[in-house]
Amino acid sequence: MVIIERLYTNIYYLISVVLFIIGFHTMLTHNNLLKKIMGMNIMDTSLFLFFVSIGYIRGGQAPILREGVIQYVNPVPSALILTGIVISVSFTAFALALVVLLHKQYGTIDADKIIALRSRRHA
């Protein structure tokens, strides 16, 4: 029961770690460049979840001064994550642009095939 209790209280952190590992793994092991980018996004998302859940308080309200509200959610992580999302979007967009270029030049988006093509050209 204690374990379940603990799992329950840390569920966000847990999920974010799991997501992080999934993203990390996808990024490292998949050959398809698009999947790599997806992995990157999953990883980023897990981090956003982690960050936001740090500042989250059960029953807290959006941090706008209003009468009758006592508990506010910590706004700092949310604000930061907004920036983080923007960064992630730009990273993704840029990565996609690179993939487009790679596809134009190599005709494939498989990392192994690209390396094979390269080494053949060098040899």
């Binding site: 967009a93 996609l96 642009a97 487009v100 270029l101 134009k104 030049q105």
Partner: peptide, 13 residues
């Protein structure tokens, strides 16, 4: 970003 992804990009080689 949308525009560039659709039409942009350098020439192949």
């Amino acid at each position: 970003l949308f525009q560039e992804l659709l039409e942009g990009g350098a020439e192949p080689d």
